[in-house]
Amino acid sequence: MSWTWFHKLASPPHAYRILGSMAPWFGWASLALILLATWWGLVKAPADYQQGDGFRILYVHAPSAWMSMFTYVVMAVAAGVGLVWRIKLAHAAAAACAPIGASFTFLALATGSIWGKPMWGTWWVWDARLTSELLLLFLYLGYMALRASFDDPQRADRASAVLALVGVINVPIIHYSVNWWSTLHQPASVTKFDKPSIDLAMLIPLFLMIAGFQLYFGWAVSRRLRGEILRRERNANWLKEAT
């Protein structure tokens, strides 16, 4: 089996072209799915017997929380690939992921807080998942701060890649330590989010929304990665020929 197609992916001009042609597909598909899931979740899904219509913010909260962790793993994998095989494009992909992941994390925190106000009566509860999300946001911000503090892009790439890898080893430790900390401190009232069985009618729009968020991530990464390539290759000849 020939691996040329794979190696070609690491070439900036080729990747630039492929990403350009893929981005609209991701974009329109994600828009369609998110609109469908929004209608399904807000209109068609039944109201929760306990939380009423308030639970519907779940359709934004849960997918963003899921995407915030997914993006961190993608970022760490890209950083690791860039560090081991010295592929500049992988570093560029990691750089493109960070702000998207931080935005998802922020969205998860904000929606969690808004959800918390009617359900818990306060804007913020030191709930395990909210706390892990907060720490994840700190990890993203640290990564972005480290990347921004180097003048030399190659050093920024490799230093932040080491940080991303250290971070991804730590994420499970942080997650479980916060869980353990929270179960010792929290009353059990919080577990109403942990309902073992969620009705299928509520679940379908959630899955649709997650799929829509994944596609949105594909669109956003494609766009950002193209931007990164433009910035990094601004003196390259292929770019002058292309424009």
């Binding site: 720490l135 250290v166 730590n170 942080i174 330590s177």
Partner: peptide, 30 residues
């Protein structure tokens, strides 16, 4: 690890705390 990463960075001390403190949260908890 944090100090090795930020060794060539201007005003590294604040950055170092930002990088290391989130990673140290489990220690604090336990």
């Amino acid at each position: 690890i944090g100090a090795a990463l930020t060794v060539g960075v201007r005003r590294g001390s604040v950055l170092l705390s930002l990088l290391v403190l989130p990673l140290a949260m489990p220690l604090l908890i336990f």
